[in-house]
Write a protein that binds this DNA or RNA. Structure first.
Length: 498
RNA sequence: GGGUCGUUAGCUCAGUCGGUAGAGCACCGCACUUUUAAUGCGAUGGUCGCGCGUUCGAAUCGCGCACGACCCA
């Protein structure tokens, strides 16, 4: 006996013994079983049939699934099996099966085992559509028991670390990830219909760019150089627009070396898309259409409930500049209070915000916004006209050179999207990168690098373009009423198990 | 980084004032051919998160650590 077998719990040991016996008499893990239908398909098609109709015209089915419950009553049993669509009840009686199968096989199987069964549909005394089984096989022996059937898994840690158990046990959790898949598929279709081309750009960057964030560092052995996991695909996608792919998008992972929280995971999924010959207000329209479409087509309603709030996706979303939003939510402030660096710094000081000497007016305005406005943005809201200082890749506004043609989108006090007219002036971009390098040298770890190759691309000519990024995880949280980003990530990052 | 709560059987949870570790589900045995949290009877199963301390004696009290959840920055 090995070390593990000695310490193994009794229940696992018993199952392992059954597997050993199984190996001796047959192929323990057969692969030749084929099913011809699924639990939910059967329920959808025959639920409405009466007991008599099912008896008059017997319907044969072959199903595979995991045994979730078992009620053994001597020579007959009921059990529910679960496949990817849901559960259906099997009626397994000794006299309906080939000689010996019931006593020598079926009764020795356990909850969690995976079986293949065939038989005819019937209605039980209380009217549950079930399968009267006349042939059943064990397909996969499960060596470990399932969590308690009634309460399921209460420990969040187990739900995250052993997601497969959560998926087996929780219909709600399966629903969330089904919805996630549908949302992403919807977005793909939505963009492809509008002539966007889906592309894949590098995950490993020599210069991390496209966002303000600390990157993960990795190392390429052959080239003997450090590389960075991407923090955003932006600069590559815009290179593609230079190349003539005038509408592109990518849905994929970004990596940011930051803390973990209910809203942050080190790797998260971002949609970025770029449309030449468009401006940012058109992307706001497109974003509204997309979100309204997800609500209508996938949720079946424009009224979205998230935690304690209800959102109406029917109405047009509010659009307000960051400057005006500060005044709106700080009635004691006037335009003068946030129009000069000196006055704004005074306001920030009263709010006890940490303001560094290197911060200009724009950065201070954004700090005030983050502290006093962001959490108020419960209803879907576009905040526009972000300062140039915090928007190193966005095009300067023609009328007000202090701000950019940019917006961010908020729901429930959370940032969901960020879009702007792309800065396609290579000389302006070079100056902005230079400014970022100065910030980095001054100690700002999140400041951008100077990407000379990207400047060369811009020098070849980026057509007038608007682009946007949407945080998919946060979007899925919204549409699945999930309080934590971990609830919408199949395998969220946790601290290593002790 | 700070605060609050939690960690006891495979799972869900009790555990009184510090005095031999409890229940339900699961599992095992017996009975049971329309059950569905099946039922009835019986049995098995424990490094009480880890470490140190207080004490005649610690799941219980104290300190530290680990992990998790929530809130705050």
């Amino acid at each position: 006996m090995t070390e593990t077998q000695v310490t193994e719990q009794e229940q696992i040991r018993q199952r392992r013994e059954k597997l050993t016996a199984l190996r001796e008499e047959t192929i323990a893990f057969p692969t030749d079983f084929r099913r011809d239908t699924l639990a939910a398909e059967i329920l959808a098609a025959y639920e409405s049939k009466t007991k008599e109709e099912l008896e008059a015209e017997p319907i044969r089915v072959k199903l595979g699934g995991r045994v979730m419950t078992r009620r053994i009553m001597g020579k007959a049993s009921f059990c529910h099996i679960q496949d990817m669509t849901g559960q259906i009840q099997l009626y397994v009686a000794r006299d309906n099966l080939p000689e010996g199968v019931y006593n020598d096989q079926f009764k020795k199987w356990d909850i969690a085992d995976i079986v293949g069964a065939e038989g005819v549909l019937f209605k039980t005394q209380v009217g549950e559509l079930s399968v009267k089984v006349d042939n059943i096989r064990l397909l996969t022996k499960a060596l470990r028991p399932l969590p308690e059937k009634f309460h399921g898994i209460a420990d969040q840690e187990i739900k995250y670390r052993q997601r497969y158990l959560d998926l087996i046990m929780s219909q709600e959790s399966r629903q969330t990830f089904l919805m996630r898949s549908k949302i992403i598929a919807y977005i793909r279709q939505f963009l492809i219909e509008r002539q966007f081309l889906e592309v894949e750009t590098p995950m490993m960057h020599v210069i991390p760019g496209g966002a303000s964030a600390r990157p993960f560092i990795t190392h390429h052995n052959t080239l003997d150089m450090d590389m960075y996991l991407r923090i955003a695909p932006e600069l590559y996608l815009k290179r593609l627009v230079v190349g003539g792919f005038e509408r592109v998008f990518e849905v994929n992972r970004n990596f940011r070396n930051e803390g973990l929280s209910t809203r942050h995971n080190p790797e998260f999924t971002m949609l970025e898309f770029y449309q030449a010959y468009a401006e940012y207000d058109e992307l706001m329209d497109l974003t509204e259409d997309m979100l309204r479409g997800i609500a209508t087509d996938l949720c079946g309603t424009t009224t979205i409930v998230y935690q304690e709030h209800t959102y109406d996706f029917e109405k047009p979303f509010e659009r307000i500049s960051i400057f005006d939003s500060i005044l709106k939510y700080n009635p004691d402030l006037t335009a003068e209070n946030i129009s000069t660096r000196e006055a704004a710094a005074e306001v920030a000081k009263k709010l006890r915000l940490p303001i560094k000497d290197s911060y200009g007016l724009g950065k201070i305005q954004v700090e005030i916004f983050d502290a006093t406005v962001e959490h108020h943005l419960i209803n879907p809201t576009f905040i526009t006209a972000y300062p140039v200082e915090v928007s190193p890749l966005a095009r300067r506004n023609d009328k007000d050179p202090h701000v950019t043609d940019r917006f961010e989108f908020f729901i429930g006090g959370r940032e969901i999207a960020n879009g702007f007219n792309e800065l396609n002036d290579p000389e302006d971009q070079a100056e902005r990168f230079q400014r970022q390098v100065e910030d980095k040298e001054a100690g700002d770890h999140e400041a951008m690098h100077y990407d000379a190759d990207y400047i060369v691309a811009l020098e070849h000519g980026l057509p007038p373009t608007a682009g946007e990024g949407i945080g998919i995880d946060r979007l899925v949280m919204l549409f699945t009423n999930s309080p934590s980003i971990r609830d919408v990530l199949l395998f969220p990052h946790l601290r290593p198990k002790a």
